[in-house]
Write a protein that binds this DNA or RNA. Structure first.
Lengths: 146, 146, 146, 146
DNA sequence: TTTT
DNA sequence: TTTT
């Protein structure tokens, strides 16, 4: 029976993308995305809970990620859960879950009013952030705007 | 920054729920849900890909799961990704991901290939399926219909 | 700024699809889908609330809808909100909203145990429901399995 | 049968909230949210398509909206489709659809092209934007942080 | 107008 | 390891 396997995330990148160029023109990008949830506990104290997600993007999306995504940026992502299985060095069966990204939208990064100064290597250097022509587009799977 | 961490699944249960009654009236149910995706490969052959998800439900939801959910049933689920971290016997840091269920809806059905007659122990024995009063309701988190 | 406009529905068809074959091989199907919500009011009485949605499918999807979808069937749908504007006979500006379907999954129809007898023209005549080859596939936009 | 009726939107507010304080402490806020989609047409030209959504929030959410939401802000919204029916002045049956908001998250920002300085009356006057205690929280239905 |  |  056909099913549904859908993930929707909105959070911030913990690091710049890690991109690998494979043989046959394949490209894969891995991202770490943090989603933070805030609530009050029984004592009324504000508690924050952060979940880290491993995202995987391929080909056209991976290239866009490589070019535009930077540590700290806020991202909206749609994808699906995918598990990888392998054996570790001790021969144990291991399983890991990744989010295979199907589309994403860049929402910008640190809010306006924050000081961009001193952020060498930041996503909004050298000048003013992602180029509008990309920042305004939702990036679909296998979309190749180049 | 507030984020979004949302999972939507529609699939079939691979087994009856595993339910644990903990101290202090806490109840937890664990479910295995399969979501199947079908597509054609480059050669035009139909390929099926099944992903298995570990679901976790608590308290009121866990009790409903214990009473009504059975292997083979079709389920619509909303929840969020939650990771557990621990050390295994060899002292390795291990991480595992579960779907914390926030609401679910029973859709009936059983997986294809099962025998529609003579389903001893099936979810719709002894007579005619889940009681309407529950089968018709979406089960929200911390909902306690008893 | 790129945005998100996403609708997820799970409900039952109120009627067979209405299909129009337009010039240039274009096909459009219109569906009425009911989503029902049940809750208890303050007095503890069970209340049902049904919302009716106008769905629009095009081309390949429309043809699948024409062939397989029938009144009463249960459907999972993803799409987006689209508004149409026009002037009515009195010259008033009118606006109407439709759900443009991007993918759908057939979940079957009336639950097992219901009597299919006497349902002439029903979705599960003459024998045993939608053909597996289609019932098992999620139908994506512009997907043409014929 | 229990169903699903879910809407996910990410867009910008076209105006400040319209808030009405009703008898019995009820409060309702109406918002206009634009979601913009960009794509290339057959000729390769970039086309933008904006859809406007009518959002409705009640009580605690409406008060938060009144206090913090301003024209131009970027918002992530989850809700459901709700239709209102009435008769217009000519006695025609009319129907209108709103999005009943169940939770929302403020993402900051304002639409491109707006002037970042001299924003009198803007959402980040008089000083520095939404108070962190609210801006960081997702606002759930019937949540009353006051 | 669906479904339970 | 992000963000506020």
């Amino acid at each position: 029976m056909a099913g549904v396997n859908k993930v929707i995330l909105l959070g911030n990148l913990g690091a710049d993308p890690e991109v690998k160029h494979l043989e046959g023109d394949k490209v894969v990008a891995n991202l770490r995305l943090a989603t933070t949830e805030a609530y009050k506990d029984r004592a009324g104290n504000r508690v924050e809970n952060t979940e880290w997600h491993d995202l995987e993007l391929w080909d056209g999306q991976a290239k866009i990620a490589e070019q535009y995504l930077k540590k700290g940026m806020q991202l909206y992502v749609e994808g699906k859960i995918k598990s990888d299985s392998w054996q570790d060095e001790q021969g144990n069966n291991r399983k890991r879950i990744k989010i295979r990204v199907l589309s994403f939208t860049m929402l910008g990064g640190k809010p306006e009013g924050s000081s961009p100064s001193g952020n060498t290597g930041n996503y909004n250097t050298p000048s003013s952030g992602p180029s509008p022509s990309v920042a305004e587009a939702t990036v679909e799977d296998d979309d190749l705007p180049f």
